[in-house]
Nucleic acid binder design. Structure first.
Length: 202
DNA sequence: TAATGGATGTTCT
DNA sequence: GAACATCCATTAT
């Protein structure tokens, strides 16, 4: 069968930045019409509602972010900037609003499907960036709240791992920039470039 | 090659 | 009515 080992609930039920780091190198699998579309996770960001001003849940529970307050291992999909969806995985025990944003994957299976959905040929850009990733995998609001531990549409499986892990501040947020909660596979060409506004680290 | 700004819709105050 | 965890085409150098 196609089975890599699926990741269980316990993995997600831990401290969010830790989960974010360990998600690197695992495999994100989407099944559409019986076809597998998957890729290795190479870039993530942690968001933790209670103490993180950049989190959707910082100001409390709303209809949109309620999934973040639920049990771990569920997909939190939201629409942003008028055109894009973003995929998160909820973490930590029920009642603690937290999630990991999946920012980029390295395409492995179903690459042709991704190319079609994206209208792009460059594999390196198919799923680099949260909006690109959801478009390439056909992820939309119908997957909001999906349980990745049991779902037949979306899951996380064991992967080959990554080499060195890089850490930085998160991309595209206003507040909470002091937290270095972005994790990525260093040197991997599928990591999104983020938005280098000025200088990198000297 | 690097930087800028417009498109776009949902959510919350 | 304002804000927003973005992307990419266009511009200037």
């Amino acid at each position: 069968m196609n089975d890599f080992r699926r990741i269980g609930r316990g993995f997600f039920e831990r401290y969010t930045p830790l989960v974010a780091r360990e998600l690197l190198g695992l495999r994100l699998v989407r099944r559409v019409d019986g076809q597998r579309v998957s890729g290795m996770i190479v870039e993530t960001e942690a968001y933790r509602g209670s103490s993180d001003p950049a989190s959707h849940a910082y100001k409390g529970r709303t209809a949109r972010n309620s999934v973040m307050f639920g049990p771990p291992g569920h997909a939190y999909v939201y629409f942003t900037m008028g055109m894009h969806f973003c995929l998160n995985v909820t973490t930590e025990p029920t009642g603690i609003p937290a999630a990991v944003l999946i920012r980029a994957i390295e395409p492995l299976e179903g690459v042709d499907s991704m190319k079609r959905l994206r209208g792009l040929d460059k594999v390196e850009r198919l799923a680099s960036g949260p909006g690109n990733l959801t478009r390439a995998m056909g992820i939309d609001k119908s997957l909001d709240g999906e349980d990745l531990v049991n779902s037949d549409r979306l899951s996380v499986e064991d992967g080959k791992g990554v080499g060195k892990v890089g850490v930085s501040t998160r991309v595209g947020i206003g507040e909470g920039q002091s937290l270095k909660w972005r994790f990525f596979a260093e040197g991997n060409p599928f990591v999104s470039k983020g938005r280098p506004s000025k200088a990198q680290n000297p």
